[in-house]
């Protein structure tokens, strides 16, 4: 059986309302992730390095995504990367037009396997694929990917 018309009020049908959520999840960062986040807290974007095959990669993990050896090392990079692809967000999740559009991009780094997704702050009319960017850190850092406020173009 189904209702042919949309029911505007659930008062008319027997139903039960409960929430189906865990209040809070605690995600552990893992041994390499922990050190990577500590570096971010110090204002430094590092990459993980596999000592077996030499792959340098992001995001950091305990295992090499190429050869699956154990990874124990992080390495500093300049932080300068380039935009692999980007998108401009005009409407938010609630369907409202945002006062200022937000650019998100897949950012890659020369010689690094993988990359990261992050915000880019620039004029949406000026952004282009291949544009070189660098991270801008917040003043108050907590050891999170959000310690990077955004990436900005390198002039």
């Amino acid at each position: 059986m189904s209702y042919m018309r949309r029911i505007s009020s659930l008062d008319k049908i027997y139903h039960f309302k409960t929430e189906m959520e865990i209040n809070a999840y605690h995600y552990t960062a893992g041994p390499i992730g922990t050190r990577w986040l500590e570096a971010l807290k110090n204002g430094e974007l590092k990459v993980a390095k596999c000592n077996k095959c030499g792959t340098r990669f992001l995001p950091p993990k305990l295992y090499c995504p190429k050869c699956f050896s154990e990874v124990s090392e992080l390495e500093s990079i300049s932080g300068e990367g380039y935009i692999d692809t980007y998108s401009v967000i005009y409407y938010n999740d609630s369907g409202e037009r945002m006062s200022e559009p937000v650019i998100i991009a897949l950012i890659r780094f020369e010689g690094i396997y993988g990359g990261i997704i992050h915000r880019v702050k620039t004029d949406p009319k000026k952004i282009r694929i291949g544009m070189r960017v660098k991270p801008v850190f917040r003043r108050d850092k907590k050891g999170s990917i959000d310690d990077i406020e955004y990436f900005q173009p390198i002039e």
Binding site: Y27, T28, A29, G30, P31, G33, T34, K61, L62, Y63, F68, E70
Partner: peptide, 16 residues
């Protein structure tokens, strides 16, 4: 009760 490793890393350790 709680492992530091992420689920991906746990899968990797057992697999290896």
């Amino acid at each position: 009760r709680r492992l530091l490793e992420t689920p991906q890393e746990m899968a990797w350790i057992a697999s290896k």
